[in-house]
Design a protein around this nucleic acid. Structure first.
Lengths: 259, 259
DNA sequence: CTTGACCTTGACGCTGCGTAAAGGTGTAAT
DNA sequence: ATTACACCTTTACGCAGCGTCAAGGTCAAG
């Protein structure tokens, strides 16, 4: 399998300029050149390019990439695994960014207000994160678990924000439940809407929604006094009413742990 | 409250060069200049700089930032939404890359082979995404319901996105659990970290965290076969191991529904 | 033999600053 | 009044990682 610049470029989703540049800086040289000076890439170069692009995606500069992949003691599999870890970390960071953007949007829409210190919270946090990203390994070696814990605290920070959202959604569930409960009919529109809200609320915490699990949880709300007490706040017999509504909503009859 | 370049720079955590550059491109001009040409910034500029840095943290280029903050009639929220879309696209791409890395890992382990074009799946997707960004509507027409549904049902879409985030956090819990389980000690560092991750995960769904409820849920994981089966995926006896870790973590002994 | 898609090298442009260089200020201490 | 020293100014080049012409050579098809 031999490729010219453009063929390889198309396959890899980069520009021909990029390939020429990589040749220029010696990062990825073609297998050979044909009689008229055309660059010809082979299998090996394809693999190498893939690796290069992997690392590039991580935001690594080309110089570092070169050092890594040209290192004779380069351990492919373990590098890949580390690579995966880093990608996961980056995704978490992206999630944080997205959350920030979303908060800003809803703040801009007046749906919620963002205190100045809140703005700086995420902002400062990011600075810390950048440091960690850059010196991650070093710091981990130098300062040990403490730093690692701090990066966990970042997650906490995130869940703190989410938590706010969830609290309001949960409040909605409670409000809807109170209203529906007063109406009295678990199959009524209000009750069904409550069940739907509750499902949405669940979507935040469950690995995968299933009617069975939903109904099962509703039953648990009745069986477990901690949860029952919580829904009792909405109305008398709140947990049972919610369970009934959810049973109708899902069309699934749960099995109580007690029956 | 007047600041010279360096004072403002120190306060905001940027370099003086940055401030001069922002002046140069007209992004942030000083309130005035004193008799010898020194830049003097006032309260207004401080606030503006805060905004600039905030948007910059969101990954926006200076040009876009300028448009947003200088044009009062500019639609900030919609710009943010566009930005959010970009971030989400990046996230989708990241997910693909992660999949790709995992494929590569298993290919390296000889479990499967990869065709040349497969090697670039995640990277090519980026181009596709860019296309989608540019020709969004057209493509929506072409690809039909899936995309349309997503953009139409906004609420649903939102919980769908969250759901994605949570799945990844849940995955982390599972990964940590598997690792801790292998180590074998529920009071060990790994297991305690797992319990902590699990707590964070819970923070997304629970109206209020309490040690008792946490321990109670952990017990439920053991008692309820649906949940037990789920954590069994991480390792043999996963649910019980997790419960033990959480019991130690919270210092609370739960009551089983069965005892 | 022409057309058009491909290839080559060369060179300048872009962001968002870092980093001198060459010089003028402000002020506190002598 | 001088000196020291931290501060300020403008000008200008440098960096990565390419994008984007420009000016020309090559290859397969018709």
């Amino acid at each position: 399998m031999e490729y010219t610049v453009q063929k390889l470029a198309r396959m890899a989703g980069v520009s021909t300029r990029t390939l020429r540049y990589y040749d220029e800086i010696g990062l990825l040289e073609p297998a050979r050149k044909n009689s008229s000076g055309y660059r010809i890439y082979g299998r090996e170069e394809v693999d190498k390019l893939q690796q290069i692009l992997f690392y590039r995606e991580l935001g690594m500069d080309l110089d570092s990439i070169q050092k890594i992949i040209s290192n004779p003691s380069f351990d492919g599999p373990s590098a890949l695994r580390m690579h995966r870890e880093k990608l996961l970390a980056r995704r978490r960071q992206l999630d944080l960014l997205i959350t920030n953007v979303e908060s800003t949007i809803s703040a801009a829409e007046g749906k919620s207000t963002m205190a100045d210190n809140e703005k700086f919270k995420g902002f400062k946090q990011k600075l810390v994160d950048d440091n960690e990203q850059q010196y991650g390994e070093e710091i981990r070696g130098k300062y040990g678990n403490d730093t690692v814990d701090k990066s966990n605290a970042k997650m906490l920070n995130m869940s703190e924000e989410k938590y706010e959202e969830f609290k309001s959604l949960e409040q909605e569930v409670l409000d809807a439940l109170a209203e529906a409960c007063e109406a009295g009919d678990p199959s009524g529109e209000l009750a069904q809407k409550t069940a739907d809200l509750h499902k949405q609320w669940l979507s935040f915490t469950w690995p995968a929604y299933s009617k069975e699990a939903h109904a099962g949880l509703a039953q648990m709300y009745v069986d477990d006094e901690r949860f029952a007490a919580y829904y009792e706040k909405a109305c008398v017999g709140g947990a049972k009413f919610l369970r009934d509504a959810i049973v109708i909503y899902t069309g699934v009859e749960p099995e109580s742990s007690f029956e």
